[in-house]
Each structure stands twice: as structure tokens, then as C-alpha cells.
Simulated assay, not measured.
Amino acid sequence: MALSFQFGSIAPTDEVWSVSQLTSAAKRLVEGEFMPVWIRGEVVGCKAWSSGHWYFGLRDRSSQVRCCMWNRYAQSAGEPPKDGTEVFLLGKPGIYEAKGEFQFNVTRMIPTAAIGAAQRELERVKEALQRDGLLDHARKRPMPVMACTVAVVTSTAGAALRDVITVVGKRWPCCRLVVVDARVQGDGAVGALVRALLLVNRIPDVEICILGRGGGGREDLAAFNSEAVCRALAAVRVPTISAVGHETDISLTDLVADLRAPTPSAAAEMAVADRREVLRQLDDLAARLAGGLAGRTRLAAERLARTADRLHGAVEVVLERERNRTGRLAAQLDALSPLRILDRGYAVPVGPDGRVLKRRGEFAPGAPFRLRVADGDVAARVESP
């Protein structure tokens, strides 16, 4: 079959790589991206070359990868493994540039048979938890901001509980600690821890659960690597903190819990708020609130003052208008007043009873009356009808 190649499809500005450039770039990308990692699988076709290097494949149920173990590392690994040997390998992914092949560069090899039954059980449990998503970071729950009821699953005879009580008492005295006693090592520890964690789910108002114990040897911490305890911890209905051993001790419960604390004291610090920090935040909030209220009050006072000025001006305008109107009405009333008629020379007769005499018949001979003129009254008498 003939293949046609259109050179016109390559632009003059396009960069054309050589195969060496491509494999070199891929090598830099792959080897620069990964840190040393442990992998597990079965050895296939291991060949020890005269140079001392080992070349072999490593497979699991669905995949296989080419591996290379250089002479300086192979010397400390002992005899080359046989086909089907299950091993743990420590190394980094890389690219063999000469052939452009992906491979795993091994620096350490440990047969799983040398690990021991306890380690194999630990790996089995971890794989099962990983498969069920219990180690997934996406399922981690946030801690409550100000928890008031905290359950502590530990031994009442251990120092871990005293550390938790001391830290909580200093940081958040109003917090209520619910201690669920459980054996944390030795025979019966796994069952006791599972029962204690199940009991936490039946305690009302619990907001956080701390699972912890003090430091100890690998055997002392074995219960916190059991599958039953890990699954019981994952089933707790509230956010959980695992604080097992010292800072350098890592257990499977640390991986399952929502939060891992290096020590029980650190777990207590993570679980409750610090009253001093809360008081500081309240002071800051009060200062901001006071400043905001002062600003709003000042703004309201300024608006009120402007409103008062406008209201005063409007009242003055209304009063002036009413004064002018009242003056006009007073002038009109004054013009119609009888006293103004008296100013023109007229007089008004008024009887002794103060009644104005309007008709001739009201003037009886000899009867006294008064004449009201413009500037006062004048006494008068009827001489004749």
C-alpha cells in the first residue's frame, strides 16, 4: 500500500524534532515528575547480565512494566529473583532513550516473604480500604468551628486522656468532653475500640470524635491498623481526628480519619477553639461595629441637620405668607370697623344699657344716653321728642 505524504501540510515555522529529541524530552518529563515510589508485583523473566545489571518485568493482574536494576543496587539485593516471586520495589519511572522505552529504575528490592505476616496484613488492609474509597481525600469532612461537645475514645488509664483534658480546659473551658473508655493495646483492643466507636454514634450532641493513644512500639499500635477499627472509624457520623502515638507514628486510622494529629495534645488543639483568639476576634469585630455605627450615626446626624435647615426655611416661608395674609385681612376688617366711621365725624348714641339707639322712638324725653365719638363718649339727654 502506497502512502502519500503532503509536504505542504508542514508550515515553514513548524519545528520538526528528531527521535532523539523526542525521547530526551520524554525522559526529562517523566523522571522530573516522579519522586521515588514503592510498587508491588510479580517478577517475570529476570536476567542478570555480565555487567551486573538486572533486567526483568514486573506484573500484576492487569499490567506489566519493564524494570532495570543497576549493578550498584543489584549487589545488595542478593540472588536474582525467580519468575513469580512477589516483591516490593523502590524506584523511579524513567525512559530508556536508546529504544524510547518506558521502564522502572529500581534502587531497592524486598521479597514480600521477607516482610512478615504483620506487614502483609497491613498491606492487605490498606489495599482494601483504598479500594473502598475510605482513604480518599474527597471524603474528608471539615471540623466544626466552635465545637462544644467532643467525644474522646481512648483508655482512661493512659496519659493521652490527661493531655486532652488539660489542653481543652485551657483553650475552651466550656467544651464538654465525653470520654468513651476502651482498651488500646493487647488482646481485646480491636473489639473494644470498635464498640467504643459504635457507641459514639449513639451519644447525642457530639460534634467531633477523637480517637487516640500515647506512643508505643509497633505491636502496641497494631489495633489502630486493624480493618475493623478503620471501618468503624469511617462509619462515625461526626468528623473524626486520629491521634495515635507520636508524631513519627503513622497508622491506618490516621489515613481514614478526617484529620490526622501528630499527638493527642495536638488533636485537642484541632478540635476546639482558643478562647483568647475568639476574644481577640470579638474585640476586632466590636471595634469594626463601633466604627461602622459611628460612621452611620454621623451620616444620619448630617442628614438630619440638612433636613432641619430645609424644614426651618420652609416654615419661615409659610409663616411669612400667613403674616402677609393676616395683615391684609386685618386691613380689610379695620376698613369695615364702625370706629373708622366715627373718625369721619359721625357719632353713635348708646343707651344706659349699652345698646345702640337706632330709632326715634327709642329716645324718651329727658332720658340720658351717651354719644360715642371718635375719641370717647359724651354724656347727653333727650330734651324733646
Rank of each mutant, 00 (worst) to 15 (best):
A159L: 04
M143W: 03
R139F: 01
S155L: 14
L134H: 01
T166S: 12
R176A: 09
K170S: 07
R176E: 14
D163H: 05
A160T: 04
I165A: 01
D163T: 02
R139C: 08
T166A: 13
V152T: 10
K170R: 15
K126D: 01
K126V: 08
A151H: 05
T166V: 02
L134M: 13
M143Y: 07
V153T: 12
L134E: 04
M143F: 05
L134N: 01
A147Y: 04
A182E: 09
R176V: 13
R162M: 08
S155E: 11
V164C: 01
G158H: 04
G158K: 07
V167M: 03
L177A: 02
A151G: 12
D132P: 03
C175D: 06
P144T: 10
Q130H: 13
T156R: 15
L177D: 00
W172Q: 01
T154Y: 08
D163S: 00
V179R: 11
L135M: 03
D132S: 10
D136F: 01
I165G: 01
V167P: 00
V164H: 04
A128C: 07
T156E: 14
A182L: 12
T166W: 06
L161W: 15
P144H: 03
D136Q: 03
K140F: 04
P142L: 09
A151R: 09
S155D: 10
V168P: 01
V153H: 09
V145E: 14
G158Y: 06
A159R: 07
L129K: 06
R139D: 01
T149W: 11
T156F: 09
V168E: 02
K126P: 05
A160H: 09
K140S: 05
V168A: 00
T149G: 05
V164D: 00
D181T: 10
R171D: 02
R171S: 03
S155P: 03
C148P: 05
T156Y: 08
V184K: 08
D187P: 15
E127D: 14
D181I: 11
C148V: 12
R139P: 02
R183E: 11
V184P: 01
R171C: 00
D136A: 07
V184H: 07
M143V: 02
V180T: 12
I165Q: 02
A157L: 12
K170I: 02
G133A: 03
P173I: 00
L177R: 00
A160Q: 06
M146K: 13
R183K: 15
V167D: 00
R162N: 11
A160C: 08
Q130F: 11
R171M: 10
D187C: 11
A151I: 13
A182F: 09
Q185I: 10
A151F: 03
